[in-house]
Amino acid sequence: MAEAAPLWWALALPPVLAVAAAATALAAAPAGHGVAPLRELARRRRRTVAADAPLATLGAVLLPLAAVSGAVVLPLGFRSVSDLAVGVVWFNAMAALAWPAVWLAGWGPNSALSLIGGYRFLAQGLAYEVPHMLALTTAALGAGSLRVGAVVEAQRGLWFVTWMPVAFAVHLLSAAAMAFWGPFDRPVGRDVAGGAAGELGGADRLSFLGGRWLLLVVAAGMAVPLFLGGGHGPLLPAWCWTLVKTAAVLAALLWLRRRLPAVRMDRFAAVAWTVVTPLAVAQALVVAVVVLGR
């Protein structure tokens, strides 16, 4: 069972995540490009005609907020800021806030291209959400608990990735789709001039694009307690294992990023519903049978 973390962890969580997200973004940037988004701090917000500015700003702020709230249940070693009894569902609910966030950022500026970006993300969300829920359910099923600490504890001997490889793969796929990143970046694609992020400027833009990296880091980090044994591992201390595994997952995602073609959301939806969802259901069934037989 996870121990309670001191209160200052809650305060330390956002800056630590921000550093992790910035490091990931730097590692992903092509050589010669710095952290361009940081320059946005010195810029003004962009104004468009008849914009719904409060909604656009709400969308931009909601994205990092969702990522940080979801990270509350993310354990470092065996401790998290709050090991909620329904931690897995909590993570899912917070990650789902990306839907309104991206759509609002797309709707708010009253611009056709950014609105298309927002709608694209909802279409993509319909595709990734169902398999993702099934993957999360599978991990919780294997542990017999919705508590993230209990899921880590259940992997003391055997990591879940060994007998739930499909759920693990689906989770990583969903992590990239949820952060509309890599092959799933159509909602902010170049073909729609930046899409949902296209009309955002200044602090809004930094918040939105930074929130996207935060969401990617948190979703990838969630794969560690759910499937990769959390802090369990030989020699190194638990917190160190968490960091090493999270970095490994992120590195794998970054490596895969340039090796995969962009995925159009409607094609992805067809594959997600006809191939990925049945596979995820079959994986859940296998795990359920194993759990019943134990």
């Binding site: 329904v86 569902v89 609910a93 806030l97 839907w99 759509w103 909802l122 969300g125 959400e129």
Partner: peptide, 12 residues
């Protein structure tokens, strides 16, 4: 939490 999750997706 499920109410929040479902309503978020539904309202979007």
């Amino acid at each position: 939490v499920v109410i929040v999750l479902m309503m978020t997706l539904e309202m979007a």
